[in-house]
Design a protein around this nucleic acid. Structure first.
Length: 288
DNA sequence: TATACGTGGCT
DNA sequence: TAGCCAAGTAT
């Protein structure tokens, strides 16, 4: 096990000088702003989140404000961030916060975890970044940095392992855990990237086990790629784009026009309705 | 544990 | 250019 200080000091100093100025990190950030950013950032790059996050904060500065509007408005305002179920869950989250927590984002990890759309990572991130709680942050960036620096492997395992959690816990500093977490994330996002890592600019290059081992390429089987073209997901995306663009009920013909395969199209549309992302009105038209 | 779930930029 | 990849969660 590497001496934690050998990682802490260089990474924290690097973060001090290289952190991006992101609006959810400013001193005047709110827990709600942090929560919204974390949900939006799930599987979505910062650059695409930025403008939408600003729109949401201006329109819904509090959980109560979002909860006061129909969930369809959240889905529409989600725009093209992808995985629109997150918008639905964020709306449900705002409703739960309003009804169960007096409109205040909870600071406790377990309480956060019980909210819709919030899993292990997001609960730790909100508890840490918004409230200073001491929790291990274990997202894809942190997992990659640790895999390389400590385990000498190019990529972490497909699923988060107990060993990874133990390592993250072991490296957690007594003081300043949130800053440590965000610093490692930032290092993974800007330097220790998945492809073409910039080891020249890495503050821990001198102690990185993977680099010292000669950067051996990933051994195991190739990681399963995400197919998209022709899938139900693509079909759902097409259908939802039509509903988002329209500000009134949409005749079914308008949906039929964007996907050839009728069987797949019906299945996708039923799925959207079942998920609560789309609604069927009495006259057979559709809306968010 | 494996799978479903959007979207678009980058190499 | 086709695939890889991005601050995951729910089932």
């Amino acid at each position: 096990m590497i001496e934690p200080k050998l990682l802490h000091l260089p990474i924290l100093e690097w973060y001090e000088n290289n952190a991006r100025d992101l609006p959810w990190r400013t001193p005047d950030r709110t827990p709600w702003g942090v929560l919204v950013s974390e949900i939006m950032l799930q599987q979505t790059p910062v650059a695409r989140v930025l403008p939408v996050w600003h729109e949401w904060m201006a329109r819904w500065p509090t959980p109560k404000a979002l909860a006061a509007e129909p969930s369809g408005e959240a889905v529409r305002a989600w725009g093209r961030l992808g995985y629109p179920r997150r918008a639905l869950r964020l709306h449900a989250c705002a409703t739960a916060i309003t009804e169960r927590h007096g409109g205040e984002v909870p600071s406790d990890h377990a309480t956060l975890l019980a909210l819709p759309g919030i899993g292990e990572y997001t609960a730790a991130a909100v508890a840490g970044f918004a409230f200073g709680g001491r929790h291990a942050i274990l997202d894809t960036n942190v997992r990659r940095v640790f895999a390389r620096a400590v385990r000498a492997e190019e990529y972490p395992p497909t699923a988060t392992s107990a060993a990874e959690r133990h390592l993250a816990e072991a490296l957690l500093p007594e003081l300043g855990a949130p800053r440590w977490g965000v610093a490692v994330m930032e290092l993974g996002a800007l330097v220790c990237t998945a492809r073409a890592p910039r080891c020249e600019g890495c503050p821990i290059a001198g102690v990185c086990a993977w680099r010292l081992a000669g950067k051996p390429p990933h051994a195991g089987p190739a990681r399963k790629g995400q197919t998209y073209a022709g899938t139900d997901r693509q079909c759902r995306g097409r259908l939802l784009a039509v509903l988002r663009a329209a500000h009134g009920p949409v005749p079914k013909a308008a949906l039929d026009a964007v996907w050839e395969d009728a069987v797949q199209r019906e299945r996708a549309l039923d799925g959207l309705v079942a998920d609560g992302l789309a609604q069927v009105l009495e006259d057979g038209t559709y809306c968010l």
